[in-house]
Amino acid sequence: MATSSRPFSIERMPGFSLLALTCFFALYMPLAPLVVYSFNAGDNIALWEGLSLRWYVAAWENDLVQSAAIRSVVVAVIASVVATSLATMVALGTTRTRPYRGQTSIYAMVNQPLMVPEIVTAVALLIFFALIKESTGYHGYAYLISAHTAFCIPFAYLPIRARLEGMDRVLETAAADLYATPWRSFTRVTLPLLLPGILAGAMLAFVISLDDVVITEFVKSAGQDTLPTYMLGQLRRTITPEINAISTVLLGVSVVMVTIIFFLSRKKA
């Protein structure tokens, strides 16, 4: 029959678009009430009383929210910058050197935080840092920042490595042929071409650090709440749409960052 000889095509399977729509709604529907009620004029997170920016103002003026937000951003900036630098070096070391023994195990090691359950890492760090705190008496931010740096590395590493692997080695050969020393070939050819990958990696690391709850909750000392752990604390009390407002801002930041990452990683070499 004429129809049976036509090639198979997803376009003619109505089930698939329905499925895609379902997935889309399942993912995004639950976010809708959260965002909508952040603009609620009333005190209740489930009872609509009119449109207002009241809770955004309240969150903005809340000292605890402010200091937690600043802490979150500072930790995320430091952790993502350090993690991205380390990840860049590791990525170069695993793709731009002569093959050596143990190269693949480095790959596995760098990705360790993706494989070990976060709660296990959290407990391990809690115990490990407790020992250090005990013996040094130091209770500052170094614990939080180093923990964030560690779990950010694989997220920074993956886009950088992907870009390095997609990059033609012959370009570096050409640079060497045209009198560029290895260092200048790196700064003038490798690094500029790698930059979109590095930026994507850094932003991904930033978002991951900004959103982290589990490890932060276990590692932070007293008075070191980040925005997510502050919110977690609030949930144990009466909840107001202030939480919705903070969440909506976080959501906005993440969406913007992820969109930029998406465009950076699509950028042609």
């Binding site: 033609d168 050969t173 045209l178 009198y179 560029a180 050819v189 071409l193």
Partner: peptide, 20 residues
């Protein structure tokens, strides 16, 4: 001598032009 010290240049098969 390493390549960057040789007064010899190459035209590569797929040109290897710098895309940036």
């Amino acid at each position: 001598l390493p390549p960057f010290q040789r007064p010899v240049n190459t035209v590569f098969q797929n040109y290897a032009l710098f895309p940036h």
